[in-house]
Amino acid sequence: MLRASSLTTNTNVDLQAVKGDKNAAAVGVEYGLELMQFAEAVANRDNVQLSKMRQTLLAKAGEKVLVDAAGVAANFQRMVRIADSMGIPVDDMEQELGQAVRAELDLTRFASAANTLEI
């Protein structure tokens, strides 16, 4: 979806941000670094880092951005658990955009790839 949005908006983004690359996060996404680090802190369940990143994002981007970012991060804490607890495969492995993103991010290293690749 990040790639799809970047193509739609004709914005250059660096997908290495998905893997935590700080320089990449700042490319093409407003407050990209702060949002990436906030998302990381939520997903890693690191309360010290989360408190720090919350304050950083609040100071840089404001309260509304912080609240909406918290919503999205929490939402995907749910979505990954729906996918993995039910073992759903990727819908269309043949789609070129998806193939390119999976290759660039080396997603087959994840254990849950087996839910798709073993079909």
Binding site: M1, L2, A17, G20, A39, A73, F76, Q77, V80
Partner: peptide, 12 residues
Amino acid sequence: LIAARVSAINEC
């Protein structure tokens, strides 16, 4: 960006 980073850390 947020969604993808959370999903990646969760190895989804």
